[in-house]
């Protein structure tokens, strides 16, 4: 289906958004088109488009998150939904209540949309969605997928480059533990981009060479001719000896600084899903420099989440 097909918007046949895997390219593009409109709405003084009026959206976060949760909250509110945030500390889950019990309890409150983040892969995706009646949005499940992040990255790229297809996009850093990387690899491949990953071998998953990417251990090689440089956060507990020997060694070889960025195209753009570790995976001068889209990604996040909520709302029962 052509990217300019006027009929593709509105065609989103899924009840849940559990991952990028399983989405057709025209469905992804349809969401991006909706999101473009949502950007316009969000820049107006009157930001409310009440397509979710009377609906209840619960943000169920088993893992602390400031930006994703607030992004979903604002997106829901701009669409007129009643939004409730639930922070479930991991400790209270361990006290005995299984996830299924939690889901059943919530389900009894008749939410219309459940936005779930969980530290375990597959949780939101295949456990909750089967046990509740409402639509489920995966806001990040362990190291599996983070679909709205990949969508907002794609939206950001498309608004600057006008397309995704045939762009060379280098994803750099802790690929092994990153749900953002998995969702992006699937999405960018689906839209015809050339995807590279750049990381030390200890931070690459097994079988990476069969995941549809070009693999680089040398960052300068990996960035050569890239249109987009996408950095990933390195978790603190993985820094000292477990996967890499030290922060300073990592920064020397895999931190994005002006020298390494110079290997990418002159008009290359820098992205990061946040929160950043300046001086670990990225130089402050690059993070806050003219090629950085990092702040804009946050704005696109709200728009993409509005688009997803709106697309799923079409499937909500009206009686």
């Amino acid at each position: 289906m052509s990217a300019n097909d006027p009929h593709r918007a509105g065609l989103f046949p899924h009840r849940h958004l559990l991952g990028i895997e399983g989405l057709q390219p025209h469905e992804i593009l349809g969401l991006l088109d909706r999101a473009d409109q949502a950007v316009e709405v969000s820049r107006q003084v009157e930001k409310i488009r009440p397509v979710l009026r009377g609906r209840t959206q619960i943000n169920l976060f088993f893992e602390a998150s400031t930006r994703t949760q607030s992004s979903f909250e604002i997106a829901g509110k701009r669409l007129g939904a009643d939004v409730m945030n639930m922070q479930v500390a991991a400790s209270s889950v361990k006290k005995g209540e299984t996830l299924i019990d939690t889901a059943a309890t919530l389900n009894a409150m008749h939410p219309d949309i459940l936005v779930v983040r969980h530290h375990a892969a597959g949780c939101a995706v295949h456990l909750l969605a089967r046990k509740v009646d409402c639509s489920v949005i995966n806001a990040g499940d362990g190291q599996h997928e983070h679909p709205t992040q990949a969508l907002l990255d794609a939206l950001t790229i498309r608004r600057h480059k006008g397309k995704i297809a045939r762009l060379t996009i280098a994803i750099c850093g802790d690929i092994l533990h990153s749900r953002v990387a998995r969702s992006n690899i699937i999405l960018l491949n689906a839209l015809g981009a050339r995807v590279r990953v750049v990381a030390p071998s200890t931070l690459l998953p097994s079988g990476i060479d069969r995941m549809g990417v070009e693999v680089f251990r040398d960052m300068k090689e990996g960035l050569k001719g890239a249109d987009i440089v996408m950095m990933l956060r390195l978790q603190r507990e993985r820094m000292n000896g477990a996967f890499i020997p030290s922060v300073r060694e990592y920064y020397r070889f895999y931190g994005l600084d002006a020298e390494k960025l110079a290997y990418a195209k002159d008009d290359a753009l820098v992205m990061h899903p946040g929160p950043m570790n300046r001086g670990v995976e990225i130089d402050p001068a690059v993070a806050d420099g003219p090629q950085s889209l990092i702040r804009e990604q946050v704005e696109m996040g709200v728009a993409v989440r509005m688009a997803v909520l709106e697309a799923l709302a079409a499937h909500l029962p009206n009686h």
């Binding site: 499940d141 599996h144 749900r179 998995r182 097994s206 079988g207 069969r210 995941m211």
Partner: peptide, 15 residues
């Protein structure tokens, strides 16, 4: 089981 399947699922593998 460690391998491509586990990598896509975001699960750590037993080699």
């Amino acid at each position: 089981n460690a391998g491509l399947n586990a990598s896509w699922k975001g699960l750590s593998g037993v080699p």
